[in-house]
Design a protein around this nucleic acid. Structure first.
Lengths: 195, 195
DNA sequence: CCTACCGATCGGTAGG
DNA sequence: CCTACCGATCGGTAGG
């Protein structure tokens, strides 16, 4: 019972912290802020978490894991590079929109992680980007994509998607699939009418 | 003499603050941090600036003005929508890369502006985005761009470019023009080989 | 541009 | 989960 309540409370703390970190930023959010939104004293937070940074770590590495898992499923499939890219983007958008507040924190507050966590984080991110780069390189080899700077293109592609949490509203008219459809359509086919 | 030295010192303060705001974020950068990098006491900063926020305001509105001015020049030109889009992106990238630290602060720290400044900032940003949206709509009417969600596409396009300050290194091999070339090429023509 | 200092607030601990 | 509290640090001012 006690354990279960503690878990729920911890979850509640992380959820509320996620919202506040997104709105105000990690550094500008105080533990007293957080506590008052939850309805307890600041000191009481420390019965459930070890430190402010632990909350940020939980958010960042949970998101990182979600992104990785979803991409690894795509990698195993046997399909052409353009299909793979499309599927990878859809998965990415689905993870992103499932918790857009956590995603926003993940993308803009990671630099406040302390050194060893920061190192892990950056290496995971690099790894993830490389998987996308590989898909583009494969697509070039298969003759389906044209010659390009694969790393540059992937960073541009991911940036255009990752910025979404800042303006994506779940009440909006676009589903994650439709968003991914729009993004990949522009990136893969371009804006120009085919002649 | 005194006036001139003061102006130089003020510039120096803003430049160093820009670097620190980019690296650590606005909220996590203290005036004591800033002062010690410059080699004076924290209290002495206030001979040159009114407040910490004034520095952020200067950075944000200077960048906003630069972006606006460069886009307004393009708007006056008589050219097709796809050429206009390309030129607009090039101008945008040039402004962005001319001071990538200030750009990074501009894009990620604006939310720390106090209310009235925040309001002005958001309205300027909206205005800027609408100019891009208009170019896409014109392109559709001219028959050069296909049907699409213009707002969505512009936000994706600008996001992919705006993220650049976080990984663009001036020592890198790509010039602003080449970067703009790459971005517009993918966006306008897509990744796929034309059949 | 400095010394001296202000009130407020920070993340976090002790002890119950 | 609370009260009581810690040392550190914050943005900023007074007065020279």
């Amino acid at each position: 019972m006690i354990t279960k309540n503690k878990l729920n409370r911890k979850q509640q703390i992380i959820e509320k912290a996620t919202q506040l970190f997104q709105k105000q930023g990690y550094a500008a959010t105080s533990m007293r802020d957080l506590a008052s939104y939850i309805g307890i004293e600041a000191a009481s937070l420390y019965s459930h978490i070890k430190s402010k940074e632990e909350i940020l770590q939980t958010i960042c590495f949970q998101m990182a894991n979600d992104f990785f898992e979803s991409l690894e499923k795509i990698e195993l499939e046997k399909s052409s590079a353009d299909e793979k890219l499309k599927k990878a983007v859809i998965s990415h958008v689905i993870v992103l929109t499932k918790d857009s507040a956590a995603s926003a924190v993940f993308f803009s507050e990671w630099r406040h992680l302390s050194e060893s966590y920061l190192k892990d984080f950056l290496s995971m991110r690099n790894n993830y980007e490389n998987k996308f780069i590989q898909i583009l390189i494969d697509g070039y080899k298969e003759g389906v994509f044209k010659k390009m700077d694969a790393k540059f293109t992937v960073l541009a592609l991911l940036s255009s998607i990752n910025w979404m949490p800042s303006w994506y509203k779940p009440e909006g008219k676009l589903s994650p699939e439709e968003i991914a459809e729009n993004v990949t359509d522009v990136f893969i086919n371009g804006l120009k009418i085919r002649s």
